[in-house]
Design a protein around this nucleic acid. Sequence first.
DNA 1: CAGCCGTGGCA
DNA 2: TTGCCAAGGCT
Length: 366
Amino acid sequence: MCDKVNDGLKSADLLAWYDDHARSLPWRVSPADRKAGVAPDPYAVWLSEIMLQQTTVAAVKNYFIRFMTLWPTFEDLANAEDERVMGEWAGLGYYARARNLLKCARTLRDQGGFPKDRAGLETLPGIGPYTSAAIAAIAFDHPETVVDGNVERVMARVFEITAPLPDAKPEMKKAAASLTPKMRPGDYAQAVMDLGATICTPKSPACGICPWRAPCKSRLSGLAPTLPRKRKKAAKPVRYGIAYLARRDDGAWLLERRPDKGLLGGMLGWPGAEWGELAQEAPPILANWRDPGAEVRHTFTHFHLLLSLRVADVPMDAQPVQGSFQVLRKSDLPTVMRKAFDLVVEQGALKQAEGVPSEDNVVAHQ
DNA sequence: CAGCCGTGGCA
DNA sequence: TTGCCAAGGCT
């Protein structure tokens, strides 16, 4: 048997479970198809893995399908315009991923395709230890050990690793490596993650139907739902800011392209001063600014934002100090900026004496 | 290397 | 309402 045995934990048991319970996902080759010789598309594997970084399957699905439709190959993506790709990524978050995605696609174009091993993959922008192992395993069926949040949780439980993260990372990685099989490593990598996502879930693990219930140490001890342990995170501070929404008489909006580095890097946004402990007035154009009253509440990774709004209708000859006028596609905006737009429309804070314009007049939907 | 970097769903 | 969490990487 090629199967590794480790305290009764057998990859074959997990693979057997995966054969019957694998989730059907747009980027996945089913275990049956894989056995029939169907090879995954490395481009689809790579794109999905980048999108799935710190992001749920539910959130990714439609973005993945949209990207594959617009840009079916990495060459197509490499030849796309930056603004177009950033706009399609809008709403998915962690925008550095989109910038690195483009950078990586253009490197692939210049190099003529994907490196065929993990080390080569990890040299590419946006591809780190997890993603390089995932692509090598899933796309090329290399016996690399994939370690993500799911795997850490499963390992912490089956081996009852009680040391807190991130201290326990090396131990969990070692545990994961001890289980990685030489047969079907691609299916195995996806099987552990499916187990973590559907059975060995963070809050109420369904231990009763787990293929590894018998050898799982923390199921016996009852500690499973409490693992893995994690160090406490710092409380999020509150930052304040003001967003300025100016609508020109021809329907164009005053927007700015944010710098590549930092928060919402490379994305479109409403002009204004940087957010901080105090909200700073910084009108981007001379106008009769009005306060619609409502505020945007939004939480980022490491702070809460309270965003006040200013709205103005401006004439065609107005000259902005910051940003430029352009036709707005709401779908190009990151979520916090969409919230500001939605509030302004809801408040009816714009001219149009007879009420709010219908969205179709101001927004070109995708 | 610890801080930075989005968003939505859920208890 | 609040905090936690999701197929992490970069600096």
